[in-house]
Design a protein around this nucleic acid. Structure first.
Lengths: 126, 126
DNA sequence: GTGGCTATCATTAGTAA
DNA sequence: CTTACTAATGATAGCCA
C-alpha cells in the first residue's frame, strides 16, 4: 500500500533578525511579512478601535500601504499633530536609549545616502 | 503544606477579531499589540532592507509611531511619491536634506531629554 | 509573484502585580 | 501604563506547484 507520502518540509526554522542576503529569499520574505504586518495592523485597528497606518517601500522602491480608516487620513493626522512622539512616552531613561539608537541609525543612513549620491553625481558627469 | 501554586492563567484563548468591549482589556490589548506591530515592522525593515513606517492613534487620541529610518521620512516619501517612485539624484538629494533636518531635530531632542533626566535624577537624590 | 504545505518558533489572551 | 506568567493560538521558513 502506498503511504500518503507527506510533502517535504522541515517546518519553520529559527533565523536571526538580520538582513537576508539571498535576493530571492529576501523578496519572498518581504512579500509574506508585508502581508503579515498589514494583517496585524488591521487586527489592532478593529479590536482596539484605533486608527492605524502602515507604509513600506520595498528594496526596489515600490510603495505599499495599509490604513484604517485610510493610510492618508492617519498619516495626515500624524504630520498635522506635529507630534513627534517616538514609541510612546516611556520613561525618560528608556526614551533616551531609543533616541541614541535612532541617532546611530540616522548616521548610518546618512552615510549610505551620501555615498549613493556621490556615485550618481559622478555618473552624471560622464 | 502549601503547594508551589502556579500562577492562575488559562493560557491564550481563541478570540474573534472584533472590537473588544471591555475598556480595560481593550487598553491592555492595544499596548501589547502596538508593541508587537512595531516589532514586526522593525523585523521587516531589518531583514528585507525596506523602509517601513507604522503610525497609530489610540482610543484616547494619543499618537504612537515607529519608522525606519524614521516615521517622518517614510511618511513624507509616501505622501510625496503618491504611488510610483522615481530613483535618481533628485530623490536622493531630497532625502538627504530631510535626513539632515531630522538629524538636527534629533540632537535638539537629545539635549532636552538629557536635561530632563538630569533633573529627575537630582530630584530622586533628595 | 502568489499560494499550499508542515513543523516549529513567536505572539499573546487572560490574569495578577 | 508597564511587566511577568502559562498555555494555546497564530505566524512563518523552507520547499514545492
Amino acid at each position: 500500500a502506498a503511504a500518503p507520502k507527506r510533502r517535504a518540509g522541515n517546518g519553520r526554522t529559527k533565523i536571526a533578525i538580520r538582513r537576508i542576503e539571498k535576493k530571492g529569499a529576501r523578496q519572498v520574505c518581504f512579500a509574506k511579512r508585508r502581508q503579515g504586518l498589514f494583517n496585524k495592523a488591521n487586527e489592532l485597528a478593529v479590536m482596539c478601535g484605533a486608527q492605524v497606518a502602515a507604509v513600506t517601500f520595498s528594496d526596489g522602491g515600490k510603495a505599499f500601504s495599509f490604513g484604517h480608516p485610510s493610510a492618508e487620513a492617519v498619516v495626515d493626522r500624524f504630520l498635522a499633530g506635529g507630534g513627534a512622539l517616538v514609541q510612546g512616552a516611556a520613561a525618560d531613561d528608556d526614551e533616551l536609549k531609543k533616541l541614541h539608537q535612532l541617532h546611530g541609525e540616522l548616521r548610518t543612513r546618512l552615510k549610505e545616502v551620501k555615498a549613493r549620491k556621490g556615485r550618481v553625481v559622478e555618473a552624471m558627469a560622464k
